[in-house]
Design a protein around this nucleic acid. Sequence first.
RNA 1: GCCCCGGUAGCUCAGUGGUUAGAGCGACGGACUCAUAAUCCGGACUGCGCGGGUUCGAAUCCCGCCCGGGGCACCA
Length: 499
Amino acid sequence: MPYYVTTPIYYVNAQPHLGHAYTTIAADVLARHMRQRGEDVFFLTGTDEHGEPVALAAEAAGVTPRELADRNSARFEALMPQIESSNDYFIRTSDPRHVEAVQEIMQRVHDAGYIYKGSYEGLYCPSCADFKTGQEVGPGDTCPVHGIDLIHEKEENWFFKLSAFQEPLEKLFADNPDFVRPPERRNEALSFIRSGLRDISCSRAGLSWGVEVPWDPEQVFYVWFDALLNYVTALRFAREGEDLTDRYWPANVQLVGKDILKFHAVFWPAILMAAGLEVERSLVVHGYLLMDGEKMSKSLGNVLDPFEVIERFGADALRFYLLREVQFGADGSVGTAGFESRYNSELANDYGNLASRTIAMIGRWRDGTVAAVDHDPELVKDFEGIDVQVAELLDRVEPTQALEAIWVRVRRLNRFVEEQAPWQIAKEPERSAELDVVLASLAEGLRSVTVALHSFMPDSTTKVLAKLGTPDTDWQAAAYKPSGDGMQVTPIEPLFPKP
RNA sequence: GCCCCGGUAGCUCAGUGGUUAGAGCGACGGACUCAUAAUCCGGACUGCGCGGGUUCGAAUCCCGCCCGGGGCACCA
């Protein structure tokens, strides 16, 4: 089955930070997991490059918008391998192929009668050459960029008939209870729709850094229309000479942060309907990462620096930490203290040390060979359904709960070692068969949790599986097999060394 | 103002009508030695924001209130 997962495209005016890494990592876990299950996966991320802020920043830096976009987009593209993102493509909205596709699709929306000329009225900054709204308006109706007074002005714009989609959207939400998750975000979007949809302007005059409106070269599309369409345009050109649209659209899961809920839960499906395209299957909204309960901000200097964490502890540890610490969907606190605590107690002590002790015991008493025997029935029972359970949780995009389900088994394995005390059995040669069962059960349990963890920590788990002599990461391999076919293990270095 | 979500052990949270309300972390005590001084066990922390109500029975349902967070349109 095709499985298409997307992240938002990141606005090039900002530096890559933890929030970008978080969304991308979550999407990557889903993509890798679905690949383990043999699905036909396409995972998209990229950068959003048009719009006034970029044009202004470029002007301030004395470069062209394209030069600025090239430079900053490259930073995001460089982030991907650092966080072990396995995205299949990285789209840039300044790509001429994207621009062309946006024009084609919006022309269709226009021809279908969903676009009309209207006038946009609001507070205008002559220096920015753009209208200011909401938080963009400084105290006393001034421009926060230039500090000058804004003037009330009208501009001729093209408008998108969002109001025409009031009922279709309500029906979409009614027919698909899981269209937006978690439910509180669904409520939020739905109440927005029910409060009455107004038409929105979809073009801007006097700005050149954008996608030109094909029937009116004096205007460019409002950046959201250009940006949202990336999810479908990318499929047209991501693979040379092949159009992947029919294969992957509609997307199975579109991950977004809660700040852009409205655009993805309301505007986006309306645009798709207007263009005669299918609507995305589901939108999954995550929360903010907070630092000690405060919203992250550079000025507060409380940012957990993802690059520093990766440098010192590896990308696997960052991936694990972010999805483990914060209930996916809710806001949650992250910080260096919390990171170190989980790194030490869970990655190093619980899991890393489990791998060390398991492999060491098999080496010491069995010369690295795991006997092909039936496993401990109680352990077998406790591992029953681990594969099904984790797969279901990830289907529901509950990575935090999936990790918890796996961790219950990791702890179970450490308890099993203490209960069985193999070092005692090893002292009594007549209990040799017992020792075989204990070690084989343990090795199988370690192998099972490791396969289950593979999408979260691709690097570390690959190492462990290699040392166990069982490199298979297909999802069937996540199931605990109650009778072993024997493994050959080799010594392993500490997976998550303590500083 | 209207709407949504939350308020459970020192901390982070699970638990949506029914045995003595749970987990992880932290702290304390103990066991063990295969392992990255790792692991395991134990009791304790006697806690469901407040006030009513429904019920044989409520953390769990209803009403009101208090506190915290979020949303209420064109900020990418």
